[in-house]
Structures are given as structure tokens and as C-alpha cells.
Design a binder for these strands. Structure first.
Length: 205
DNA sequence: CGGCTGATGATCT
DNA sequence: GATCATCAGCCGG
């Protein structure tokens, strides 16, 4: 039977609309749309949780300088940095500074909008709330792999950032999840109460 | 719900 | 060889 569809009006964000500062970008991205155009379907979702990784931050992949893996973090703001971790998961970051400065925003939570039935296949689950809650799940649902590393999310391409479909609610701030270095820094941002925000309940309210 | 554990492989020391 | 920006599955409350 026909899958349910929702009309979604999204315009691509131009780089000039992105704040030139990674923490501001991490806040700005809450409520905006992430889109992955596949040949057969458009996958999209509303960004509801982010974390900033900045210069001088020992938890950042760029802390020890540019390497083959992290080079995308040093691209101008709005480029994808995709890496593989724990032998299982891809993570999607968005570079957040001028070219040459290694900073980025990790996307940790997405509220699915379009292509939900495909996301369910990618994730091997029918559960809506578990589809894209958490960075690894988000990448799997959106079919993000290393082949997208370095892509300009503000250019015309398959993976891009779009305008908000509805305004962001109240934004919560907390410590980042799953790190040991610089664990006290308040660099995690999320839409309060949104069910697609990851982490324990205490970090979702 | 929260806490724990094993899986799994790229990356850098 | 250690580390790792995680997750699914299992258990107890």
C-alpha cells in the first residue's frame, strides 16, 4: 500500500546563513533540516541534538592537528566530516570554522520527516523513536557513510542542510555524551523534551 | 527506565 | 596494542 507522505517545504541553506563560529553553529542547527537525496527517495529529518568540538578541546578529533582522517574538520564551515568508530558506526559532523581551523558539530539526534519507511529498513526496526536517536543511529537511518566525507553541505549535492520546517523549541545545554576528555564542558545542545534527543532522561529535559 | 557488557575495525602511538 | 564523539541485548527494579 502507499506509504504515508508529508509535504515538507525546505530550501537549501547558503553558507552565508551559517554562523562563523562553531558553538553558534551548533545552536543554530537545532530545528534545521538534514537532507540526503538518494536515487529512489529523499531522506530528511529535523536536527534536534548537536555537540560542538572546538580548538583547544582535548575531546576533539582535531586536537592533535590535521591527519588523513580528520582533514574534513579543517574545511570551511558547512562541510561533512564522516568517520567510522567502534567497528560499527558512522558519525556525521559539520565543519564549523573558516578553512584551516579544525572545529565541528556532531549531529546526535534527528526527528524523521521524509523517507521514514526507508529509514526503518536501514535501521532494521519499525520503532519510530529509535530510528535516529543517537549519532550512530542517525547516520544509519540517513545512510551516511564514509563516501560522503568532505562533501559541501551548502553546494548542490546529495547531502545538504535545509531551512527549518518549524521553529526550534526551547534549547537545553549540557555536557557532551560518551567522552572522557573535557567532560565538564557545556557544549551539547538539544531541543528540550524532544523524543529524538539521545542520552539519559536527565540530559533530555 | 538505568546499568552493564561484548562486538568490531580504523586510527595513531 | 590501546583507544574509541556507540549500540543492541539482557537483566533487575
Amino acid at each position: 500500500m502507499m506509504p504515508a507522505r508529508r509535504k515538507v517545504r525546505i530550501r537549501r541553506l547558503h553558507r552565508s546563513e551559517l554562523p562563523i563560529e562553531t558553538i553558534k553553529l551548533a545552536r543554530f542547527l537545532i530545528g534545521k533540516t538534514l537532507v540526503h537525496d538518494l536515487p529512489h527517495v529523499r531522506l530528511s529529518g529535523r536536527i534536534v541534538e548537536t555537540e560542538a568540538y572546538i580548538v583547544g578541546d582535548a575531546a576533539s578529533h582535531a586536537f592533535r592537528g590535521l591527519t588523513p582522517r580528520n582533514k574534513s574538520l579543517f574545511l570551511d564551515r558547512g562541510h561533512a566530516y564522516v568517520y567510522f568508530i567502534y567497528g560499527n558506526h558512522y558519525m556525521l559532523n559539520i565543519s564549523g570554522q573558516r578553512e584551516g581551523i579544525g572545529e565541528g558539530v556532531l549531529l546526535r539526534g534527528l526527528e524523521p520527516l521524509e523517507g521514514i519507511e526507508w529509514m526503518q529498513r536501514h535501521r532494521h526496526t519499525k520503532s519510530l523513536t529509535e530510528l535516529s536517536r543517537g549519532p550512530g543511529r542517525l547516520a544509519a537511518a540517513m545512510r551516511i557513510t564514509r563516501s560522503l566525507d568532505g562533501l559541501d553541505l551548502c553546494a548542490k549535492g546529495p547531502l545538504w542542510l535545509g531551512t527549518a520546517t518549524k521553529p526550534a523549541g526551547k534549547i537545553g545545554v549540557s555536557v557532551r555524551i560518551g567522552i572522557t576528555q573535557e567532560a565538564h564542558r557545556l557544549l551539547r545542545f538539544y531541543e528540550r523534551g524532544n523524543p529524538f534527543v539521545s542520552g539519559p532522561k536527565s540530559l533530555r529535559v
